[in-house]
Write a protein that binds this DNA or RNA. Structure first.
Lengths: 223, 223
DNA sequence: CCTGTTTTTACGGGAAACCGTAAGCCTCGA
DNA sequence: TCGAGGCTTACGGTTTCCCGTAAAAACAGG
């Protein structure tokens, strides 16, 4: 059974509806168990642990808006990893606008989360179902996730590649990118290497133009 | 005073927290007065009008997710315009993730909306304040909007320009774009015109490369 | 230390994009 | 009808990018 639940969600409106979902399920929920920042969430988890009264479940968003208040942990992903470090048995439910199946699957695999629910048309019902499933010891992957049609290639861009792409997107001409890379001690920095990297990235995705690559990276929030 | 309020918001969780905000303000809210699609919203507004019991306020999102159910109106913007057509005195409150000041200002000017509240860290409080202000006959522009630093250029891209940009982003080589434009009867379609349009767009924004233009348009959700 | 392999860089020919100029075309008003 | 001005297109030279090849450098194993 779930008794102690922590909500990490920056948007007050989302936060409130998560609380309401918990209420609807008859799970008591103290106002102190909801936070708007990742750092606060981790602090709560640590404190609860040290007091011998740890949380059963963490419901967290993935993206948190930047703010005037400087934070150490800025993404749900990092929060999950940090939380699992201090309390490996903590159950995790991710509640995010991100609705790509591949992203959710990645979280199950890499971070050993217990449920994934995307925000959307029926998200509150979805959320309740997920919480109930977890409380029964199960795992829950929402059916509302968008399965990418053409078998998404999940390619990990290297540091150089990301640097090249973002320089391009900022208008740096290709022949000037070596200077930039060298100035930031990123290797390899030769013009040939830049050209080759661009060529190989485009080949991987079946693109023909740099513009396509930029569009892709923007769509996937890679840059 | 506000008595009859319609909520048009596709995400159930957001919808719920808007309802809760209304409750907190002591505004009675029938479950029938919340919809998940723009078309439903317009139908409700029309029906209420014809029954001589029109709505006082429409609280709407701007973006609505696509779905298996085909809709005529698919954006909050179009809904607002359509609603104003059937009931010009209807008050409008926009509640959206979009947090650019320029977008909000544009809505006040073009669509004569009464309040703009971006989703964010304190959005429920913000929302309540907005509703109260409207009920007193005022207008409300949230202070949580991001004022674009370097005086955003708000440039209206023409049909040709958008076509060129999206073709580029899809990998069409520049010299093949004329074929595409002609096939879709978009003018002008000469290669020179394509080059000139690209040149002028880049000049306007101070860009040097097409990649920058693509990145910009992706960021602004133009393509 | 030597050798084979991989990675990085250099070079050069060809293609695409860029940009200025000029010619063609349409529109509008005298 | 004619001519001026704006818009569109055609053309050519220059720059940038693309891509294959090969030299140079870094690396690993013996």
């Amino acid at each position: 059974m779930l008794q102690k639940v922590l909500i990490a969600e920056d948007y007050e409106s989302s936060n409130i509806s998560v609380q309401k979902a918990l209420e609807d399920l008859g799970i008591s929920h103290d106002i102190k168990n909801q936070v708007y920042y990742c750092d606060d969430a981790l602090a709560r988890i640590k404190k609860a642990m040290s007091e011998g009264n740890p949380y059963d479940l963490l419901i967290t968003d993935l993206s948190f808006d930047d703010d005037h208040t400087k934070q150490i942990i800025t993404t749900g992903n990092a929060l999950i990893k940090a939380a699992k470090d201090v309390q490996p048995d903590l159950k995790i439910l991710v509640f995010s606008v991100e609705n790509r199946l591949s992203v959710a699957q990645h979280l199950f695999k890499e971070c050993d989360i217990d449920a994934y629910v995307p925000k959307g048309r029926r998200d509150s019902q979805d959320l309740k179902l997920a919480i109930e499933t977890i409380s029964k010891g199960g795992r829950y992957l929402s059916g509302n996730l968008k399965k990418e049609e053409k078998a998404e290639i999940d390619y990990d861009f290297s540091v150089v590649e990301l640097a090249i792409i973002s320089q391009l997107a900022q208008g740096t001409s290709q022949k000037d990118i070596p200077h930039y890379l060298q100035a930031n001690s990123i290797t390899p920095f030769g013009l040939s290497s830049v050209e080759k990297k661009l060529g190989s990235m485009k080949a991987i995705f079946g693109f023909t133009k740099n513009e396509q690559l930029i569009a892709y990276c923007k769509d996937k929030n890679i840059i």
